[in-house]
């Protein structure tokens, strides 16, 4: 089981790698934004993985005095904010892509570059 104790972090690294590859290598603008959300999703996993306490539960008190073992609330708060930031970026990015499509008639970056080079 010792081997699996860091499994979350490896998955985080691998997802980050996959997302980053899509962001850098793809030429379709929508696909790059999808890659960006995988990339950001990986970071959520990093933070949430560190909040777990063995034998703990979600940090919501069941009794008035707050007794019990609870997982760490702070990374959860940070990631709530980060998720919102992520969707805000995606929304703005998609709006830009829609306008690009209207102006250039395509969302493939290499085609757009050729059109800009001509003008």
């Amino acid at each position: 089981m010792e081997f699996l104790a860091l499994y979350n972090y490896w998955v985080f690294a691998v997802l980050l790698l996959i997302g980053l590859y899509a962001v850098v290598a793809k030429v379709n603008l929508v696909k790059r934004l999808i890659g960006l959300s995988i990339f950001q999703g990986a970071v959520f996993l990093l933070y949430i993985s560190m909040d777990k306490v063995e034998g703990g539960t979600a940090p919501i008190f069941q009794t008035a005095d707050g007794a019990g073992v609870f997982s760490n609330p702070l990374p959860q708060v940070l990631i709530l904010t980060a998720i919102v930031v992520g969707i805000a970026t995606t929304a703005l990015g998609l709006a830009v892509v829609v306008r690009i499509r209207e102006e250039y008639g395509t969302v493939e970056e290499d085609v757009i570059e050729d059109m800009d080079a001509d003008s």
Partner: peptide, 13 residues
């Protein structure tokens, strides 16, 4: 628009 998109991607990364 393209300049914005590139900045958005790299800035977010």
């Amino acid at each position: 628009l393209m300049a914005t998109f590139r900045y958005l991607i790299l800035g977010t990364v």
